[in-house]
Simulated assay, not measured.
Amino acid sequence: MTVCRDCCCGSARKHPGVDHDRQLDRLRSALPAPHRVRTSQCLDVCDQSNVVVVHPAPAARRAGARPAWFGLVLDDVVADDIAAWITAGGPGRAPLGAILELSVIAPPA
């Protein structure tokens, strides 16, 4: 999983009601090894901040699965749903629930 933490994502100025550090800690706690939660600089989807990208497991990637992009990840419910989906298998391995599908965004062109 890649969590954007740059100009807009992770910004207390843009999202003052979100504890961005707590969100990152929560994701890391929910996804222990072998999962990895890393941060990145701007992913160029600032209008959808906070952005999270879930990468498929290597075998799923070889089978054709692609990363899933999520936008407006601003509360614990969405972050917890993403973590649960990853734990269930993630892209190419577990179905994406209807509620979580509402947070899916298109990657930048």
Rank of each mutant, 00 (worst) to 15 (best):
M1D: 12
M1Q: 11
T2L: 15
V3M: 10
C4T: 04
C4M: 09
R5W: 11
R5L: 03
C7G: 00
C8E: 09
G10H: 04
G10E: 02
G10D: 00
S11T: 01
S11I: 02
R13T: 14
P16G: 03
G17R: 08
G17A: 07
D19F: 03
D19H: 02
H20L: 00
H20A: 03
D21A: 09
D21I: 00
R22Q: 13
Q23A: 11
Q23R: 13
D25W: 09
D25T: 15
R26M: 14
R26N: 06
L27M: 15
R28H: 06
R28N: 06
R28S: 08
S29L: 11
A30H: 06
A30R: 06
A30N: 08
L31N: 09
P32E: 08
A33C: 00
A33W: 04
R38Q: 15
R38P: 00
T39F: 05
T39L: 07
T39K: 06
S40W: 08
S40G: 07
C42Y: 03
L43N: 01
D44R: 15
D44E: 14
D44V: 10
V45Q: 10
C46P: 03
Q48F: 12
Q48K: 10
S49L: 05
N50P: 04
V53T: 11
V53L: 10
P56N: 12
P56M: 07
A57H: 14
A57C: 01
A60Q: 12
A60K: 09
R61H: 15
R62I: 04
R62H: 09
A63G: 12
G64F: 05
G64A: 09
G64Q: 06
A65W: 05
R66N: 13
P67N: 12
P67W: 08
W69F: 10
W69K: 03
W69N: 05
F70C: 01
G71F: 01
L72E: 06
L72V: 00
V73E: 02
L74N: 07
D75E: 12
D75N: 11
V78A: 13
V78S: 02
V78Q: 00
A79S: 15
D80F: 04
D80W: 04
D80E: 10
D80N: 07
D81P: 00
D81Q: 15
D81W: 05
D81M: 14
A83C: 11
A83G: 10
A83V: 06
A84Y: 01
A84G: 11
A84R: 10
T87I: 12
T87G: 13
A88G: 02
G89I: 07
G89E: 13
P91N: 08
P91S: 10
P91D: 09
P91K: 05
G92Q: 04
R93W: 02
R93H: 06
A94K: 13
A98N: 01
A98T: 03
L100W: 07
S103E: 04
V104R: 14
V104A: 04
A106N: 14
A106C: 07
P108F: 10
P108C: 04
P108L: 03
A109C: 07
